[in-house]
């Protein structure tokens, strides 16, 4: 994540990501689950997302 040529890798993280930060990638390889969220999340939203996607 230290490659400063962001255009090279933003789309590889998730094609829907427009480059806005903060952004969070949720993944659980054992359950084969993956969810990408662009933008801010508060603590409650974060908990909801973790419960839903992991």
């Amino acid at each position: 994540m230290t490659n400063l040529d962001y255009n090279l890798w933003i789309e590889k993280v998730d094609p829907s990501w427009q480059g806005n930060i903060p952004a969070t990638l949720f993944f659980n390889n054992q359950k084969k689950k993956r969810h990408f969220h662009a933008g801010e999340v508060d603590e409650k939203e974060l908990e909801t997302l973790i419960t839903r996607y992991l």
Binding site: Y6, N7, I10, E11, W17, Q18, G19, N20, I21, P22, A23, A38, G39, E40
Partner: peptide
């Protein structure tokens, strides 16, 4: 077009 890094609006 490119993808621009930046703070979310």
């Amino acid at each position: 077009g490119t993808k621009a890094i930046g703070c979310t609006i």
